[in-house]
Structure formats: structure tokens, C-alpha cells
């Protein structure tokens, strides 16, 4: 590290409180605009922050409100009596611990595959010198632009009759049905065709284009093989990109209902479960009435009660995301702004 030159002392601007009236006027003229602007800035941030945070706070408040109190105009924000009934019912309804572990594991698998494939593809696109192959990048843009739902039916049929060049049919007599199996999502993710994979490839390509080629040349000089260079030199340098893409991928895969509904439909997935619960509150609630303690309010046909339960369920589903974000927010925000999305 080169030592920074010490600044000459005269350059330090001293803050001075104006004394006379003339000085005050001068000071306000000079700084007034700045003060007004910063006031405006904080006001705006607080307003927008309130819009963003209010629904979450409302969710928390609705979760811990006792069921008798819901709809009572006196306690819209802070519950008069705290109760965990909504939480307990939502917990049972979602089969929470089991579903949480399942969803965490499958989503983590998807993230790893997606990041790996996007990084590798983005890296190739950044480094390849063949002009014809470079032009294939247009297809990546096309995959971002074309809504995946357009290809819903053929993809569905493809996994319905999954086969690799007729090999499986030759062995077992019929193609296998991969629907309902998370493997479908893994295959899609690995091939760079998962949820928003195109965007990740784009981000990685822009990022790797910003890395100097000399890095790899130096590694080559030092006798590093290609794979070794990739995992020892390139990937550690690509940390900002990897963090950005991992967070985005985790969040979007977690929140995704489209792919998981179409190809997996597993009821252990939290999002699908929530979808199913919100579709038919009365019956799903009645389905668990045996597991609910007798002293609970539990009016499974009451609209307000159903709403509170649904809110609690939603809170439980996004809770892991918020926890994750709390942990990673600093690095995420830093890396996202350095991820070289700009190129």
C-alpha cells in the first residue's frame, strides 16, 4: 500500500458559526440552498420509506393482534392484547418447519446451479473471440425479452415425455414423466434457461468484460490451467457479480409460482402452499381444525379471521427473505453498485 500524502493543514476548512447578522445572511445565501435540498431529500426518503415499510409493519401488527380485536377501529396498528393465535394457526396450516427446510434446500440448489451456469456462460460470451459465436448473444437478449409463459405448453410437454434422444424409451419402453419432480427446475437452471437466467448471463457478461484479460494471461504464465484459472482467479474476482446474482436468484426463485406450479407443483413448496391456501381458505382451515387447541378463537368461516391468517401466512413465507436480506444487505448493496451491470 502506498501511504497517502498528508493534506496540508491550511486546506482543512474550519466550520465557523456566523456571528453578526450580515454573516448570517451571507451564510444562509451560501448554504441555504443546500440545507433546503437536504431537508427535501430526507423528507422524500422518509415518505418513500414509509410507503415501503408500512405494509410490512401492518403485516406484523395483524399477525400479533388477538382475533377478537381484528376489525376493531380502535386498534388498527398496535394490538390491545397480543396473541400468537394467528401465528400458530398459520404455522400449522403451512406445515412450516418441514416446508421451510424443503423450500430452502430446493431454492439453494437452484441458486447454485443458476449462478454457476450464468457465470460460465457469461464468461464465455465475454472472452470468446469468434465473431459468429459472439452473435449468439442476441439469443440471450431474446430470452430476456420473450415472456417464458409463451413457451409454457411445449416445455410442459417436453417434461411430460422426457427423453434424451430416445435412449430412455429404448431401455424402459416409455419416456419418463419428470413433472412433479424438482429435477425439471434443476435441468432448466443448469442450462441457463431458468427463471430470468438471461438477465444473469447478461450481468455476468458485462462484469467479466470489465475484468482485464491480463489477469488470465498472468495466471497462464504462472502455469495455471484453464479450470484452475476459472475457480482460483476469475471467480474470486467476480464476487460482486456472484453476490448480486445469488441474491436476485434466491429471491426470485423463492417468490416464483409460475415455474414451480407448472413443473413441480409440490405442496411442500411454501409459495405453492400459500397459493393453495389463499385459493380456498375455508376448506384448508377446516382441514387442520383437529390440530388446533380447543381454547382458540378459530372461526374458519369468518372473513376477517381468514384474512388475518392469510396475512400471517404471507409473513411467514417472506420472513426468511427478510432475514436473509438483513444479513446480506450491506454486501449486496455494495456489490450491486459495483457489479459492473453497466459494462
Amino acid at each position: 500500500m502506498i501511504k497517502k500524502k498528508e493534506k496540508p493543514k491550511t486546506a482543512v476548512v474550519q466550520r465557523r458559526i456566523p456571528k453578526s447578522a450580515e454573516e448570517w445572511i451571507f451564510w444562509i445565501r451560501r448554504k441555504g440552498g443546500g440545507i433546503f435540498l437536504s431537508f427535501l431529500r430526507y423528507a422524500l426518503i422518509i415518505c418513500i420509506g414509509q410507503i415501503i415499510l408500512m405494509p410490512i409493519l401492518k403485516m406484523v401488527s395483524a399477525t400479533f393482534m388477538s382475533p377478537e380485536e381484528v376489525g376493531n377501529p380502535i386498534s388498527t396498528w398496535i394490538p390491545g392484547t397480543f396473541s400468537t393465535e394467528h401465528l400458530v394457526v398459520a404455522f400449522t396450516l403451512l406445515n412450516y418447519p418441514k416446508a421451510l427446510v424443503y423450500t430452502l434446500l430446493t431454492t439453494a440448489g437452484q441458486v447454485v446451479l443458476q449462478v454457476l451456469s450464468a457465470a460460465i456462460t457469461g464468461y464465455s460470451f465475454a472472452r470468446i473471440r469468434n465473431k459468429k459465436l459472439q452473435k449468439l448473444f442476441a439469443i440471450v437478449i431474446l430470452t430476456i425479452v420473450v415472456p417464458p409463459s409463451v413457451m409454457m405448453l411445449p416445455q410442459y410437454l417436453f417434461f411430460r415425455n422426457f427423453d434424451i434422444f430416445g435412449i430412455i424409451e429404448a431401455i424402459t419402453g416409455s419416456p419418463i414423466n419428470l413433472l412433479g419432480n424438482p429435477v425439471t427446475l434443476y435441468i432448466l437452471d443448469f442450462c441457463g434457461m431458468g427463471l430470468k437466467s438471461g438477465l444473469y448471463i447478461y450481468i455476468f457478461r458485462q462484469f467479466f468484460r470489465g475484468l482485464p484479460r491480463e489477469l488470465e494471461e498472468a495466471a497462464h504464465m504462472d502455469g495455471c490451467g484453464f479450470v484452475q484459472t476459472l475457480f482460483r482467479i476469475i471467480m474470486p474476482n467476480a464476487m460482486p457479480g456472484i453476490i448480486t446474482v445469488s441474491v436476485l436468484s434466491f429471491v426470485w426463485n423463492w417468490n416464483d409460482t409460475y415455474y414451480s406450479n407448472l413443473f413441480v407443483g409440490n405442496r411442500l413448496n411454501l409459495m405453492i402452499k400459500l397459493n393453495q391456501v389463499s385459493g380456498d381458505m375455508t376448506n384448508t382451515l377446516w382441514g387442520i381444525h383437529g390440530k388446533i387447541p380447543g381454547d382458540f378463537f378459530f372461526e374458519h368461516t369468518n372473513m376477517l379471521y381468514q384474512n388475518s391468517i392469510l396475512t400471517s401466512c404471507s409473513m411467514l413465507v417472506i420472513l426468511p427473505l427478510i432475514v436473509l436480506f438483513m444479513f446480506i444487505q450491506k454486501r449486496f448493496v455494495e456489490s450491486a453498485s459495483n457489479a459492473g451491470i453497466v459494462g
Binding site: 451456469s117 456462460t121 464465455s124 472472452r127 469468434n130 449468439l136 431474446l142 430470452t143 442450462c191 441457463g192
Partner: peptide, 30 residues
């Protein structure tokens, strides 16, 4: 550079397969 080009193509293969199987073919089939 030759080696990098070669590996570049190799690493592109999963994506190429994915594009053909899950993007171009479905699009044409639709």
C-alpha cells in the same frame, strides 16, 4: 488464446443445449 477459445466453446455447450431444447424448439413448436 487458442485454449481460451476452446474452453469458451466448451463452457457454452450447456447453454447452447438449453437454448435449443428449452427456448428455440418450444418457440417453433408454439
Amino acid at each position: 488464446y487458442r485454449r481460451q477459445d476452446m474452453w469458451g466453446v466448451i463452457m457454452l455447450i450447456p447453454w447452447l443445449i438449453g437454448t435449443v431444447l428449452f427456448f428455440l424448439m418450444p418457440l417453433i413448436r408454439v
